[in-house]
Design a protein around this nucleic acid. Structure first.
Lengths: 194, 194, 194, 194
DNA sequence: TATGAATGAGACTTCATTCAT
DNA sequence: TATGAATGAAGTCTCATTCAT
């Protein structure tokens, strides 16, 4: 196995453990056990716990960013893109269900991951904003909407749905949910007839 | 000073420190120093670090819940209520700016507060949902919208705005922002003319 | 209440607690609670935990020594004196039964009292030895027996009986036991007919 | 060095320190220093101070029990067995002289070992009782003696001798002493001519 | 005089890191 | 290269002692 391949394996293991237990709560032993190697071996690839954590954060964000990029660059209407984004996010979260479930209850559990996710969240927001601007140009989005706030509403609604339905209620995300997310975002909640 | 008053003071100090450093990252000494008392004194009021953390969580959530309730029960249109909620949330976050700023950067930092906030967030979501149902009855909100998803969009958009503008960009929340939040939520982003 | 009387009360309480929990295992709070006073008050009468312990040890030994002295100085045959001694010791132990019971099981429990008891034990041995010498003069004890070893056998047999029957088996000491102790000590176990 | 060997070494060190200082008085650092290892290493072999103490107690008692058994099962007259037992006990104590000496003075010093020794003492007493019954069958011990009390006298006399001569007076146990112990036990102290 | 809230030194225990194998 | 036994700094918690009331 190449050095690079082994490093990736350790990062995978580290992601899992740090995600559940947070930085302080994670023991190097846990990471080693999860990776199926000896504790000393982790130190052959990473100088310290701190460094391992930071590399893992970068490793995860990069992959996430690439995925988002792919989804939004695919051809399709803006509605379709929002729908795909919501679906990707829900399934990403669901994939990590055992972890997410643990996060969702109020047990004592640390998560530096949080801070990293905020950053990543912002980065994704920027990508969406660009798509909103494009969509305005193409007449798919109202011109009187601030793209900044449109992206905030999109990201916020999707994330909130994941937090509530998938993580907290531990419910399976359904196709109909994505349609409703698109509906509420596109049409708004106001009653124009009122 | 009464026993109860002193306990509250320690909880205040604990909130601050736990918020910044997370459970594992917080030392009892830190809490004591922050409260301006000796380490042993903290143990006169709380049996263990775990207990201190849990009481602090309850202490904080209760206050937040009461505030939200007050805002939504005041008279006014549904739009006004959303606006007031967004403002309250932004200012709550801004008040904790020094803390929030630290949370927003990707430094190593734990936050069990996260898990607690998810729970609280869900609880607030339920309160909002009831308001949506009322608003539909009164013709303020489209009848074809799932109240569940309306509340998700409202909470999500407000939280996302706070995370992005107030916490991450460290910008002052402006009155105009609240209007934009209301606009994007009420009107939606879709171009009906399109 | 006089100062001296109060001191005695604290010493009584301290005896009880130190006896059960040992020096390190005893908290000044325990002693105060047992004496029915505040923790600070103990310090009005004793400078430190160490001093309290030492005064308590002296206090208890003195009383014990006086009692032994009284028993052995009473008129009566040597056999009667051994019997009275065995009875006094068994009843002394039984009086402290709850304490002794706790001591007898192998639970973790400290007892500096042990060291003090060894010393006291030796002191009592000396008193007995003198009585043995007298008894030899009066023809009650064999002249070919070393008084040293006679006193060792007497003390040892009595103490062992207390440890086994009263403390360990938690049995009531019976009058017949004292007779058997006297018998085995006076006649010996050897079969002269053999 | 095998894991088992290392554990035994730590138990040896722990025996010494617990014996002198008692449970509460013993610091894990003391045990580690005595064993010539780091504090953390002790925890590699034992989960807690309590567990270390308990394993040490078992470790010591088992060896002692085996030795006693060996002595009493050897061929020889009952007198010879008592003599051998007295000698073993005295030498066992003398071997631990530095420890025993410290125990004998009234310095502050805890000894849970005491409770463990009482139990062990009782167990040994039972072994002796069986031997007494055998000795009665073989006509070596008076038939009118309660074997229970005979064993009490034997154990008690031997222990008392150790406590007084070996521990307290710090004297070397002499061969003649064992003869005197046998004499006083076999013949009794009473003057039959009297 | 009597009290008990406050304190901080010191104990047990954990775990990141090292290093001999 | 891979390992895990060994380590000791650092954290949680206890409790003898002080001191303001």
């Amino acid at each position: 196995m190449t050095k690079e391949r082994k490093k990736a394996e350790i990062l995978q293991a580290a992601s899992k453990v740090f995600y559940i237990k947070g930085f302080e709560g994670t023991k190097m032993d846990d990471v080693a056990k999860e990776a199926g190697i000896g504790k000393g071996t982790v130190y052959e690839y990473f100088d310290s716990k701190k460094q391992l954590f930071e590399e893992m954060a970068v490793y995860n964000c990069e992959e996430h960013g690439r995925n988002i990029q792919d989804i939004l660059e695919k051809d399709g209407s803006f509605k379709e893109k929002i729908r795909a984004l919501a679906k990707y996010q829900a399934e990403l979260v669901r994939e990590h269900m055992p972890i997410a479930r643990m996060m969702s209850c109020s047990k004592i559990m640390a998560r530096e991951m949080g801070a990293i996710f905020i950053e990543q969240n912002i980065r994704v927001g920027e990508i969406i904003k660009k798509q909103v601007v494009q969509a305005i140009d193409q007449g798919e989005v109202r011109a009187d909407i601030d793209p900044e706030f449109a992206s905030v509403a999109i990201m916020g609604t999707i994330m909130q749905h994941c937090g509530k339905k998938v993580i907290f209620a531990e419910a399976m995300p359904e196709e109909a949910d994505y349609d409703k997310i698109v509906q509420v975002l596109i049409l708004g909640i106001g009653n124009e007839a009122g």
